[in-house]
Each structure stands twice: as C-alpha cells, then as structure tokens.
C-alpha cells in the first residue's frame, strides 16, 4: 500500500538505521580523559572507578594531538580532563582558555618547586629531564667517545649516528632548542644546533622517535626525555643514560581540567585522584619511571632524584610563549634544517 513493497521499506529503514546504529553511549557518571600515557591511564581506571564511583573512558593521543583535539572541540568539548604529555601544550591550553585551573586540595602534597614552576596553569604530575640515550656498542664500533655534555654533540665523530625529533612536529625537540638557548644564549645555541645537525642521521616525527633506532643499534645517540630511556632499558635494550654536564632542561608534565567539559565534577575528581600517592605510584609499573610530583610517592627504581640531576632554571613562562616558540622553530627550520650534510 505504500507503493514501496514492505521489503523495500524495511531496506530503506535498515539503511537509515545502519547509519545511526553505532551510537556511543555516555551517561552522566562518565569521565572522558585525553590521555597521553595510555598504560598509566589503563592502570588507574579500576581504582579510580572504585574510589569515586565515576566511570572512566580515555583516548590515547600524543601531546600535540591532544591539544589540537581539545582546541578543535572547544565550542563543544567531549573531554573532561587532559592527562600527561609534555608541559607546553598544557600551558598553551591554559593560555588559550581551553582549560581551567583546578585548585586541588592535594596541592599541598606536591613538590612546591614544581607547582610554582608551572605557575597556576596546570597541576604537575612528574618532572622529566632531557637526556642522551647512548648505545655504547655503536659508538665503540664507530670509534667515537661517550658524550658527556651538550658541546660534545658537535663532535664530527658522531656523524650519521645521532637522532633527534623535528621541532616542527614534536614538543620534545622544542624543549631541546629552548634548553640550549637558555644555557648558551641564542647565537651560540644555534651554532651548536648547526653542528649537531651535521651529525644527525635523520630527524624523527615523534619526540622519542630516535629511541627505537638507538635501541636497535641504528643510531648511537638520541636526544630524548629521560623517562622513555629508563623504560627502554628496563625493556632490555642495551642503552645508557647520559645527563649533559652543563645542565639540562626538563618538562613538567601535568594534568588539566578541560573548560566546559561534559562532566566537570568528574574531571575534578579525576585530577584529585591522579595527584594522590596511590595514582602516582601506578606510574612506574606502567613504564613511567619519572620522579613524581607528589612528595609521598615512591621514587621509581633507576630514576634520579630531581635534586641530584643538574637541572637548569627552565623558564616555562617565557619559553612557553607561542610567539617565541614559533620564532625559534622558524629560525631552526630556515637556518639549520636546509643545511646539507
């Protein structure tokens, strides 16, 4: 009677439903987290759910992708909290008003230095210095000495043996540039970067991209955040950590509350949980052996106490500024990257 046969109508209906069927269910009790460190989040899920009664879902994205995602969704956020990854995107997010500061009651348990270094933009969860991942066998075969300082990286003996991330795609590489600029002044830093450029086998896309090749023996030295190196050593790769003697830069990874998220109370509860000793101690077993921000948290095996690492007084506010950041990266891209080697 419909002109269409019943089957045709059913077919059309099925087609419409076929488009609509995979509906994502979310109810009020769910906390959505953008999570840069998937395994840590995975481990926190059950205890967090048990402790607070919220349900937790997370999406694993790289640091910068996380920021892009939160920014793209700013008119209509799907996430409540943004966990871990390099500090810069957290800063940028706070500056752009994508996240808001959560004055957590657990702040008193955190290392005051770390809390003040990020200056009310977000809450610190751990500090992570930049270090050299060195494969001694490779250097030995090439007849090159072990590096001890940033300036050593200019040694032509390392030609084709070094790897680092491309600052155009990775926050880690920017921290390296900013560290060198703070240590040596901009001109001298760029001279050193130019000399390092001569030794690079290639620039990688992700921050820890050089780590795999160093572990596999493709490269001798990678300039990388230390925590991933510790993890790779624990995984059984023949790598050693060298902390440059001039001092090194570091990042303070943190957790932010997304502004206007679907479940702000849940987001706050998640942040409070993340800062607790219990949650911080889940970091190491899941491959995140950084010194944690919570003073009561256990220091992971093999991780240096922050007081023993020669850390520069990293100026997060100045070097987190997007204009300075794009100027330095732009300079690197036009003055260093094109130089043949």
């Amino acid at each position: 009677m419909f002109g269409f046969s019943r089957k045709a109508t059913v077919l059309a209906g099925a087609m419409v439903l076929g488009l609509a069927a995979p509906v994502s269910a979310q109810d009020k009790g769910q906390v959505n987290v953008v999570c840069v460190l998937a395994e840590w989040c995975d481990a926190m899920r059950a205890p967090f759910e048990a402790a607070t009664g919220y349900r937790m879902e997370f999406l694993n994205l790289r640091s910068n992708e996380a920021l892009v995602r939160i920014r793209a969704e700013s008119s209509n956020p799907t996430f409540d909290a943004y966990f871990a990854g390099t500090g810069d995107p957290h800063f940028v997010a706070a500056r752009e008003g994508l996240t808001e500061y959560h004055d957590s009651p657990l702040k008193s348990e955190l290392l005051p230095d770390l809390v003040s270094a990020v200056d009310g933009a977000y809450l610190p969860i751990y500090a992570n210095p930049i270090a050299f991942a060195v494969n001694p066998q490779v250097l030995e075969q090439a007849g090159a000495p072990m590096p001890a300082s940033w300036r050593d990286l200019a040694n032509p003996a390392y030609k084709g043996l070094m790897g680092m991330a491309d600052p155009n795609s990775s926050g880690t590489a920017y921290v390296v540039i900013a560290t060198l600029v703070q240590l040596f002044g901009e001109e001298e830093a760029f001279d050193l970067l130019a000399a390092m450029h001569q030794n690079m086998a290639s620039y990688t896309r992700s921050g820890s991209g050089a780590l795999g090749p160093v572990g596999q023996g493709e490269l001798g030295i990678g300039v990388i955040f230390m925590s991933s190196i510790v993890r790779e050593i624990q995984n059984g790769f023949p790598i050693e950590i060298v902390l440059p003697e001039e001092g090194t830069g570091y990042e303070i990874s943190g957790v932010s509350l997304v502004k206007n998220g679907p479940n702000p109370e849940g987001g706050r509860a998640f942040i409070d949980y993340v800062l607790s000793k219990e949650a911080q101690d889940l970091g190491e077993p899941t491959g995140n052996p950084q010194p944690k921000a919570n003073m009561n948290a256990t220091l992971p095996e093999g991780a240096p106490e922050m007081s023993k690492v020669n850390i520069i007084d990293y100026d997060f506010v100045t070097y987190g500024d997007p204009d300075l950041q794009s100027r330095l990266i732009g300079r690197w891209t036009s003055e260093i990257f094109p130089v043949p080697r």
């Binding site: 879902e57 790289r62 799907t78 996430f79 992700s206 820890s208 795999g212 572990g215």
Partner: peptide, 22 residues
Amino acid sequence: LVGAGNNLATVLLLSWVEQGRL
C-alpha cells in the same frame, strides 16, 4: 576521528610502532 572508547586497530598499531613496541 577516533575518540574515547572507539580507538581503531590501525591507529593503535601506529602508536605502538612509534613507541618502539615493535
């Protein structure tokens, strides 16, 4: 396009390759 709770196999595979979990 992947989101919380609907990550896809290939995207996860790519992130494993990048993390060196070959």
